[in-house]
Simulated scan of single mutants.
Amino acid sequence: MNIKQMSFYPSVASIISLSLLMSPQVNAAAENAGEFYLGAKTGWSNFDFGQNDGDIDDDAWAGSVYGGYQFNEWFSLEGGYNYLGNSKEHVAGSEVNKTQIQNGELGAKLDWNLTSAWNLFGKVGTSYNYVDQKTGAYNDSDENWSLMLGAGVEYQLSHNWRVRTEYQWFDNVGESSTTGKTDVNYVSLGLSYYFGSSDSAAPVAAAATTAAVVAAQEPEPEPAVVEEPLPAATLSKGAFEHNSVELTSDAKSSLDPVVTYLEQRPEINVAVIGYTDSTGAAEYNQKLSEKRAQKAADYLTENGIDESRINVEGKGEENPIADNSTAEGREQNRRIEITYQD
C-alpha cells in the first residue's frame, strides 16, 4: 500500500528545544526528585494511509501504561507500552483491510516548571513497534524501531498525583515490504502517581524552653516574660507553599511568640535569615532565600516591631541542616531561622 507521511518535526522540536534551554535556569526545588512514578493514559491515535480506492477509517482509540524515575528537577527516564488501535479500510461497505499497531517506548523526559503546579515537558526517545495487518484472508506482521518525539503539559494535584495531557509522534512505523510504513500521531490524557512522602507536616513552631524566674524573697512577683528560645524560631516544614515566598498561616503563628518577646524587650534586636536547599541554580536560590526572609521580617513589622530592630539576610544553599539528596532533607533545608541580638 502507499503511505503518506505526516511530519511534525518543526513544532515538536521547537518545544523540546525550549525545554532543554530553559529547564536548568527556571526550575526551583522539585518535590519529586529521586522518586519513581507510574501512570496510565488514554486518547486518540491517527494513521495517515494513502489508498484512494476505499473508505479509510484511520482514527482509533488508544491507551497506555507508563513509568519512570525522576532523577532531578528537570530530567526523568520514562518507558511505557502503547496500544495505538486499528486502522480500517472498507470497500463497498465491507472491511478489506485492518492494521493494528502496538509498541513499547523508552525516552528522556525534560521538564520546565512554568509555576509551582504547572509543568511543560518534552520527550525524545525510541519505540519498538509491532504491526499486525489483515487483508482479506491474509495476515502480515512486522516489527521495527522508530524515532519517538513528544511534548505535553502536567498539573500537580498534590505531591503524589499529577495529571498530564500529551502529544506523541512515532516516525515510519512498519516495514515497506510487508505492512507498509506510516507515521502515527497520538494525543492522550493521563494520570501519574509518584512514590514519595508528601512531607505535609505542620511547621516547626517556636517553643518556650525556660520560664522567667522571680526572686522568692519579694512579696509581689514580677510579671513573667516570654522565654527566649535559641534560636528564637526555625520555620521549616510547611512554612511556605511549594516554590512560594508567601508565609502559611502556621508559619505566622510560629512568629507570634517572637513578636511578644520583642515587645517586652525593646532593647533586643532580631536577625531573620533565609535558606534554601541545593536544588536549582545557586543565584535563583539566593534570591529566593532573601525574599522568604523578608516576608518573615514584614510579618514582624506588621505586628508593631520597628524595622530598625530587624536585620534581614538570605544565605541561599549555605549551612544545610539535613541531607539534600532526600525529599525530607530538602524540606528541612528550606527554612527561616530567627535569632536574638543584644
Rank of each mutant, 00 (worst) to 15 (best):
168 Q>K: 08
29 A>E: 01
309 R>P: 10
187 V>R: 03
78 E>M: 10
264 Q>K: 03
311 N>M: 04
50 G>M: 02
224 A>V: 05
27 N>F: 02
282 A>T: 09
264 Q>S: 07
28 A>R: 12
321 I>A: 08
325 S>T: 15
148 M>F: 10
161 W>A: 12
120 L>D: 06
36 F>E: 04
182 T>M: 04
60 A>Q: 08
298 D>H: 03
136 G>Q: 01
311 N>H: 12
209 T>N: 03
319 N>Q: 08
50 G>K: 07
228 E>M: 05
208 A>P: 08
100 Q>A: 13
233 A>M: 06
297 A>R: 05
61 W>K: 03
23 S>E: 02
81 Y>D: 01
301 T>P: 12
55 D>Y: 14
141 S>H: 13
329 G>D: 01
125 G>E: 00
105 E>D: 01
281 A>R: 08
198 S>L: 06
315 K>H: 06
86 N>T: 14
243 N>Y: 09
99 T>N: 10
170 F>Q: 03
233 A>G: 04
309 R>L: 12
83 Y>P: 09
158 S>R: 15
145 W>R: 00
320 P>N: 00
194 Y>M: 05
205 A>Q: 10
178 T>Y: 01
130 Y>S: 06
294 Q>W: 05
47 F>G: 13
140 D>C: 06
299 Y>M: 04
234 T>W: 03
21 L>Q: 02
290 E>V: 11
100 Q>W: 00
78 E>T: 15
126 T>H: 02
34 G>M: 08
268 I>F: 10
315 K>F: 08
32 N>T: 15
156 Q>A: 15
94 S>Y: 11
61 W>C: 01
334 R>Q: 12
301 T>V: 09
31 E>N: 11
200 S>R: 07
222 E>Q: 12
171 D>H: 08
20 L>A: 08
322 A>S: 10
60 A>C: 07
221 P>N: 00
233 A>E: 00
325 S>M: 04
215 A>K: 08
162 R>L: 15
59 D>I: 12
78 E>Q: 15
277 D>G: 14
187 V>E: 00
10 P>T: 01
318 E>M: 11
98 K>L: 14
117 A>D: 14
193 Y>E: 11
197 S>W: 13
305 I>F: 07
234 T>R: 02
336 I>Y: 02
273 I>F: 10
202 A>G: 09
289 S>D: 05
144 N>S: 08
203 P>N: 05
122 G>E: 01
